[in-house]
Simulated scan of single mutants.
Amino acid sequence: MHLQVNQANIGYNKTLISNATANLNLGEVCLLIGNNGVGKTTLIKSILHQIPLLQGEIYLHGKNIKHLSVKEIAENIAVVFSKAVIPQNYTVEDLISLGKYIHYPFYFELNKEDRNEVSSIIEELDLLQYKDTLLKNLSDGNLQKAFIGRAFTQNSPVIILDEPTTHLDEKNKVMILKILRKLALEHQKLILFSSHDWRLAKEFADKIWYIKDNQLYTGIVEDVLLQHDELTSPTLFQMNENFVPPNIVAPYVYKEMLYSLLQKNFPIDLSLLTFEFKDYWIISHFKDNYQCESFEEIVTLLNTIY
């Protein structure tokens, strides 16, 4: 195991995560999830030894993290926090080049191989047109991609990202996650990234670390998802306590969209209804059947029924 957390109590003055035990190998992508304030960032900082453990141990490649120097940790772990200090008067190329800093003395000049690598990463992150743009003039999304680029050029075996997709639109979010997975599989990197969106795990992660009720639940994505109803049931998004869903027979994405529509607009008991999708919606209510081509038609229909 390349990264091991052994019976660790994690927190500041009080324990946020109790008796945590987990491990990850090179080549694996792990999604760290949990509600705000449960300790995701605190766990990341504990792995980096920026916060001492209250109990237990963390090992990196068989070495106790508390016995490693700051330089040794940096050589082994590249990290991107959701809130980072923006270097003044640095361009995108300058920032991404900084990933090479740990491999050189304080004053250094990139060699040809390094410059080619930086250029390749800039192009892969779709930042070529912003190569010479000052960081302070970038959008939040492109700034986030630049910081991720710096982590890539560091060439550390472990990359940890604290909510890396927060400021990204869907296109760039998918692009970053595909690159992370490619790095893990083709270059044997260990990728640990946090997010609020557990559904990312199904597409991009091998494992999940899930923080809930002061516990860290870990394992293969599909195992962890099925062990926690709130990670698979659309009731996670339910806002109306009086809403009782109907029976819905439809492909997953249509089912989820219909559920979202109904719980927002009809906070009532809909259990006597059945919705079935067959290129259009068939709605059954007692002995009556209705046909709707769109969600807008469904809303109109239900307003006449209820």
Rank of each mutant, 00 (worst) to 15 (best):
H67R: 13
E93W: 03
P87V: 04
D140C: 01
P164Y: 13
F147G: 00
Q88C: 04
D169E: 06
K100W: 14
P105H: 08
V174K: 14
L190A: 07
I121H: 06
L138H: 02
I86E: 10
I159D: 10
I73E: 13
L200T: 00
F147H: 10
L185P: 01
V80G: 03
K202F: 08
V174G: 00
V158F: 14
I65S: 01
E117H: 12
I102Q: 15
Y107L: 07
K100T: 09
K173W: 12
F152R: 04
A201T: 03
S97H: 04
L98A: 03
G149D: 07
A151H: 10
L68R: 03
L125V: 00
H167K: 13
R150C: 05
Q188N: 10
I191D: 06
G99L: 15
S120R: 13
D206M: 07
L180W: 12
D169Q: 05
T166M: 11
Q88I: 02
Q144N: 11
L125T: 01
L110D: 14
K189Q: 06
D197N: 06
D140S: 10
F193V: 00
I102G: 02
L192E: 02
K171T: 06
R150K: 13
A184D: 09
L177F: 09
E72S: 03
D114I: 04
F204Y: 11
L190P: 01
I191V: 12
D197H: 07
L185N: 08
R181L: 03
F108E: 08
H67N: 14
N137H: 11
L185A: 09
S139C: 00
A84S: 14
N89Y: 15
L95D: 13
V85W: 15
F193D: 03
S97T: 10
Q188P: 02
L125K: 01
S120T: 08
L138E: 02
F108V: 01
K178R: 14
K71H: 06
D197Q: 11
T153D: 08
L168R: 00
